[in-house]
Design a protein around this nucleic acid. Structure first.
Lengths: 332, 332
DNA sequence: TTGTAGGCGTTATCAC
DNA sequence: GTGATAACGCCTACAA
């Protein structure tokens, strides 16, 4: 593979001039420029990106941290897929490449390492949880002044770049809708409280109930893990509680719940109203179609990436951003 | 951020020794090793990955090229999601990071550039098409001895690393199933012939028909673009042909077709049999559930990555691999 | 067992 | 306008 040296030799100029031409800096005689360009073309030369990163002290990569669970096909979940699409689009626009980091939840709890090694200029963290180790790791990250942004998770104690959807509002909308339809005993099938968005959903649920003066009945509150199976498994218990509606924290759980319903011979939508969350593709294919809270995952990803990259490109003092995009209910 | 120099100074050794300790090479006195480790810990030192790549001439990145279409949420398609999950898992196992490259179909037709810049040690190309530019670009890639692998696409003229599913077989199974069910006029809703897998599907379709002595009727052959919309739009024409079954090149098109069917008041599965392809999540949620050809996308991704990385890690002469994983029919 | 020193391919700061 | 040249942080013979 040709290097700058060979190009310089062939063009009869110094290596510095080659760089100047290729980086389009400084004044250059048109004739020299042409000679260099031709020589470069002759060798099919392109600057070595790693050497460039090394010299510039910038990698040109935007890191994306994803939770990695062996055997679980992560991208197949609507949430991550959409988000990553958005991040990718925004990064591409700004000339950054995406470096994916799969983090094993048990072993890789050190976000710092990612940056210490300086393979990325900034980083977006997906699927962070509220555990002691993670919080501490994030505090260190911040102390080291490494630019990062959390999507879909926020901590009370930690003020850092954050992009999320307004899940309090989303859940409120969903539950209010069910109440408006005349349902009173509404079960809530939530995900793990280790995620702040689960907690937010609970707040929205409580808020909607509170407005109608309905007290929280803990028997109607069930925790799954956002998987279809957990929705499926929760169904028998929920049915025992004589509810007339179910609000699920995501579509997967809602779909699992509906499957069990059908197996038990109780068609969904007849004597039982169900509302999901995410408005994933699947929501429109179920029978009956699933009413669901639409979350702008793609926009969350692209906005987070845009803001983050913008802030590192303009290298003045970075302001912390904490944005919340709104959700809406898609009634089917 | 601390560098090796500072660590060396604090430990009272040379920089070379620091590297030796950290890379675990050569004989080192235990005491020295401890001093170095402590000094490293003191500064919270981790070697700069880019400098390392630079010195070693290896990036430690596995590139993944993805077609990029503005406005289309790529990862949301089962195909890419699953594949990328598989690639990611295999890369992680071998200590490689994933570098994603979104390729604009119109402008970025030069695969070479990716490698010339040497930001990746090897590359997996998804969504390659059979166009003049792409073929030429791939030929150059190969001539430059850059290790890459195509997934889901192969060319007659070009012998390169390839991993695919056996779509001839898959389509054959699907059509044979429909024939066995007693259907005779089977429409085929295929995707663009720019993808070799579309062509393979056609072969399978023809093979199954041929076995029963049924001649190809071009009125029953329709080309969509693998989107749900294209399935939806193709429906009226297909219905006009008085077919009793439809085989779709992927589930998305099958689902679009079914939607139109329902809108027209003709429930699927009643007077019209439908078989999809991919066995995506969505296939089980439709009403009625969709019979579909299961393709091991995840395994394709992980196997391709494994083989490719293996071949570059063992730096002897690389043998070209061309593998085809088998598919099976999931009857619902 | 450890130190010295050359090299990796750029960028960027000086001179001229 | 252009050419030297010193970084950049690390790896790795080669010497000692």
């Amino acid at each position: 593979m040709a290097t700058r040296k060979e190009v310089a030799a062939r063009a009869g100029v110094s290596e510095a001039t080659v760089s100047r031409v290729l980086n389009d800096v400084g004044p250059i005689k048109e004739e020299t420029r042409q000679r260099v360009l031709q020589a470069a073309k002759h060798f099919n030369y392109a600057p070595n990106a790693i050497a460039q990163s090394f010299a510039r002290g910038k990698s040109g990569n935007l890191g994306v941290v994803l939770p990695y669970v062996p055997g679980v096909h992560l991208f197949s979940t609507f949430y991550f897929s959409e988000m990553l699409s958005g991040i990718g689009a925004a990064a591409k626009e700004r000339g950054y490449d995406l470096l994916l980091k799969f983090r094993s939840l048990e072993t890789d709890n050190d976000y710092e390492l990612l940056f210490q090694r300086q393979k990325v200029d900034a980083c977006i963290i997906l699927g962070a949880r509220n555990t002691v180790e993670e919080r501490e790791s994030l505090v260190r990250l911040q102390a080291a002044k490494l630019p990062f942004c959390l999507i879909g998770q926020h901590y009370e104690e930690l003020r850092c770049n954050t992009l999320d959807a307004d899940h309090v509002q989303g859940s409120y909308l969903a539950v209010k809708y069910l109440l408006d339809q005349g349902h009173a005993r509404i079960a809530f099938l939530n995900g793990s409280p280790a995620y702040s968005n689960s907690q937010d959903r609970l707040k929205g649920y409580l808020k909607a109930l509170g407005e109608r003066g309905i007290a929280f009945d803990e028997r109607l509150y069930v925790e799954g893990n956002y998987s279809r199976t957990s929705g499926y498994q929760a169904a028998p218990y929920i049915l025992e509680q004589q509810v007339d509606a179910v609000f699920a924290g995501n579509d997967r759980m809602a779909i699992g719940f509906m499957q069990k319903l059908r197996e038990l011979g109780r068609g969904a939508g007849q004597d039982m109203a169900i509302v999901g969350y995410d408005n994933s593709d699947a929501a429109q294919f179920t029978e009956p179609p699933l009413t669901s809270v639409a979350v702008p995952f793609y926009e969350m990803g692209s906005l987070a990436a845009a803001k983050l990259l913008e802030s590192i490109d303009a290298n003045d003092e970075k302001e912390i951003f904490q944005e919340k995009l709104s959700t809406h209910l898609v009634i089917r």
